[in-house]
Amino acid sequence: MIHCDSIEKGVRTVSKLINQPVLVVTDGRRRPRRFFWIKNWIDVQDILDEWKDTGRWWDGEAEKTFYRLTTNGGAVYELFADRRMNQWNLYRVLD
């Protein structure tokens, strides 16, 4: 699914919803350092933003921590960690 997003400073970007499990290597603060996507390990260059989302708690959904990050290739990704399921997901790719 392709979304057209308006993010910082009025620059329009396009995002693709992925929402699939990925392998992630984390740092000492349990933040992503690199992740495995399309047969490649991708290194995280910078974490731009970080937030938590409780989701549909009333349906039993657990809190997720989201990271918006840049990688060496220049792309922007959003990953989230579901700590209860001990599971990382690649949520979106932003160009």
Binding site: E8, L48, D49, E50, W51, K52, T65, F66, R68
Partner: peptide, 8 residues
């Protein structure tokens, strides 16, 4: 803490 845009 922990809201989108917090860092900025």
């Amino acid at each position: 803490g922990y809201l989108p845009g917090s860092k900025r």
